[in-house]
Design a binder for these strands. Structure first.
Lengths: 114, 114
DNA sequence: CCGAGTGTTCGATGAACATCTTACAGTCTC
DNA sequence: GAGACTGTAAGATGTTCATCGAACACTCGG
């Protein structure tokens, strides 16, 4: 019997921050990092809830990656949910754009990061 | 005879960066700082070339202030010119906005910084 | 020419922060 | 239950960066 992967597991649920309560400095700092920009861009190119944390092509280890997702959650940029052993992600496009209009569009633009 | 304050003094001219050549990361990092945000906001509230570097109400010493202006110049956000003993500033609104649309508007918005 | 005012540079300090390694806690399959 | 896989937590390390104090350079007014 394949147990249905549900989000209410025993694991500690990820702590989310409402974009409406995020300060300008927190948002800008979260976005002013090359690894996080890459995460946001890859995430924007995939459907919601289809990418697990480990599925991103970034040049850092698991621990650092986990840290970056914590920062993104704290800035109201990413929502996470547990699906069995993995933690899948969603970019909070509308909500974040309502709070900081244009910022996400800027990060997702064609401009070279570095 | 009151010598006319001119910009071609003997002092080393400030090094400017064209906003068109600024990377996304440089722009975001420059703007992700509380002191620099305050400088930008005060500068936006004054006419061009009317504010000298020392005329800003920020809680840092001269040395740090000079550093922050160097960063702002490097990000293509501020243009400087020497007028006698002081160095006066101008916010490069149009140029910077052409390169990073919406970013300046976000920084100048009503949102609380911290 | 001296002194006050303005801003930069240098060296040092301290605080964040990004990163890694290791260890641990879940989940799933066999 | 054993083992593979995924992600988090804790501790250590190194770097970046904001800041300061002091010294220096330049401008202007007596």
């Amino acid at each position: 019997m394949p147990k249905q992967a549900e989000s209410g597991g025993h694991r500690a649920a990820p702590v989310h921050t409402d974009p409406a309560e995020v300060s300008l400095l927190t948002a800008l700092s979260a976005v002013a990092d090359p690894v996080r920009i890459q995460l946001i861009r890859e995430l924007a190119g995939s459907a919601a809830w289809t990418r697990s944390c480990g599925s991103f092509d970034v040049p850092v280890g698991k621990a650092a990656l986990s840290h970056h997702f914590t920062v993104l959650r704290g800035a109201g940029l990413v929502e996470q949910r547990d699906e069995g052993p993995r933690r899948v992600n969603r970019l909070r496009r509308e909500e974040f754009d309502a709070r900081f209009p244009g910022l996400l569009a800027l990060v997702l633009g064609d401009v070279a990061v570095d």
